[in-house]
Amino acid sequence: MKLSRLKRRLPNGRHGVIAVPFVWLFLFFVLPFAIVLKISFTEADVAIPPYTEIYTWADNQLSIVLNLGNYLMLTEDPLYLAAYLGSLKMAFFSTLICLLIGYPMAYAIARADKELQTVLLLLIMMPTWTAILIRVYAWMGILSNNGLLNGVLQGLGLIDAPLQILNTDIAVYIGVVYSYLPFMILPLFANLVKHDLSLLEAASDLGSSHINNFWKITVPLSKNGIIAGCMLVFIPVVGEFVIPELLGGPETLMIGKVLWQEFFNNRDWPVASALAVVMLAILIVPIILFNRNQAKELEGKV
């Protein structure tokens, strides 16, 4: 009796399997975040690394000094709020556009023949085999004043002077939507392909129109796919730096850029860390909502 109870207490294979994701989360999320959180409470200094320590050990006394100035600074200057809002706006509209373009594409792929499906999915994923940087650079070539797009439009006589697209927010939207579209399509496809088509047939038999079928059956059933796709696009776009930096104009104000400035131009790692901590707090809300939704779905299945 006793031995078996002891056995139950000791870690077994099952615990080991469960531990893997926790170790992973600890190593790659909790630990880095703890370091960033620590730096956000220090002060900038001319040293390696360029910030002060938060704890000192002297005369058998451990003193911990938390500098809240970095967080206060974020509230004093409207720049930071504007940058957060700029990022959220960019992420929101990009996600919306991705959804509007991605949903019909995912739907078409899910309803295509099995053989064609593989080819279509491959076509969706193929661009991601090239480095993102190269693809964004290609867009610079397409969108510039002397670029492909303006050349074609001018050649067709549709416009007289080149359209200024590169270095504007429009170019950033194009780049972001292009880069993140696969992340919207794939979860949507995974969801849509599982739908039971007999539901649609049943509805049609009862006299429901195709449009009615779509809105009343397909869309509600694909809710989880929509949420997953939106999260996969929204969250990384909030922190996006490369695309706005290369395609955006000077007025494109996003948190990634402000973070870069604090880190590189001001060599102020503590303020940069504080910014990152606040950004994470902003992102955690949709992540929690997402997780809750996932949990609910799982419960529903069981």
Binding site: A44, L79, A82, P250, E251, L253, Q261, N266, R267, D268
Partner: peptide
């Protein structure tokens, strides 16, 4: 000095983004 550096960076952001 760090203060002037920060002031210049801040100015620069205002110049570039209008904010």
């Amino acid at each position: 000095p760090a203060k002037v550096q920060r002031a210049m960076t801040r100015s620069w952001t205002k110049i570039k983004s209008g904010k």
